[in-house]
C-alpha cells in the first residue's frame, strides 16, 4: 500500500513534544513518525526510537581486511626478495606487527566511516529529500509522519493540533 509523508514543523522542543503527544493520541506509534532536528536531542525525547544499527560490524571487518593486506605486504614482499638487513630474520615479526597494527587501524577507520554513511542511509547527492524544511537547521523541529495514504489527513490533523508552525506533505514511497 502506498505510504505518504507529511511533515509538521515546530518552533521549539516543547511544541514538538506536544506534536508527538498529539500524534500518539491519534493512534500513531513511534514507528509511524520520525523526528528531524538541526542538532542531537536526548534519545527518545519525542517518543521515537531509532532502530539498532550494525555499525560495530564495519570496524571489525575493516580491521581484518587491513590486517590481511598488511600480512600480504610484509610477508609477501620479503619472501619474494629475501634480503637480510640488519641481521634480522626475513620474516621479522616485531617489524611486521607494526605495519599490521597500522594497516588494521587504517582500514578499521575507513570502514567505520563507510559504515556511518551507509547506516545513516546516505549518501543522497540530490539534497535533503522530498519532504524537508530548511528551517530545521534554524532550530525548528520536524515531525515526519510516514503513513498509509488514507491516514494522511488524520496525521496532518494531529500535527496541526499539536501546534505545528507549518505542515507540509508530498507523496513519496510505495
Amino acid at each position: 500500500m502506498a505510504r505518504q509523508n507529511v511533515l509538521g514543523v515546530y518552533a521549539d522542543a516543547d511544541s514538538a513534544a506536544a506534536g508527538a503527544r498529539s500524534l500518539r493520541a491519534a493512534g500513531f506509534t513511534g514507528e509511524d513518525y520520525e523526528v528531524l532536528t538541526g542538532n542531537p536531542y536526548p534519545e527518545g525525547a519525542f517518543g521515537d526510537h531509532p532502530k539498532r544499527n550494525k555499525l560495530f560490524v564495519f570496524p571489525i571487518a575493516g580491521g581484518l581486511t587491513g590486517f590481511s593486506l598488511a600480512l600480504l605486504f610484509t610477508a609477501g614482499t620479503q619472501a619474494a626478495f629475501p634480503l637480510v638487513t640488519g641481521g634480522k630474520p626475513i620474516l621479522a615479526i616485531p617489524a611486521m606487527m607494526i605495519i599490521m597494527y597500522e594497516m588494521s587501524l587504517l582500514f578499521a577507520m575507513i570502514f567505520t566511516v563507510m559504515g556511518v554513511i551507509f547506516e545513516s542511509r546516505l549518501p543522497r547527492f540530490s539534497g535533503a529529500g522530498p519532504v524537508y524544511d530548511p528551517r530545521i537547521t534554524l532550530g525548528y523541529i520536524g515531525l515526519l509522519a510516514t503513513v498509509e495514504e488514507e491516514r494522511i489527513p488524520a496525521a496532518r490533523q494531529a500535527l496541526q493540533d499539536g501546534g505545528a508552525a507549518d505542515v507540509v506533505g508530498e507523496t513519496t514511497t510505495a
Binding site: 544499527n53 546516505l122 543522497r124
Partner: peptide, 12 residues
C-alpha cells in the same frame, strides 16, 4: 550527502 537530521543519523 543528503543529511536530514533524523535520530538515527544523530545517533550514528
Amino acid at each position: 550527502l543528503g543529511w536530514r537530521g533524523t535520530p538515527r543519523q544523530w545517533q550514528l
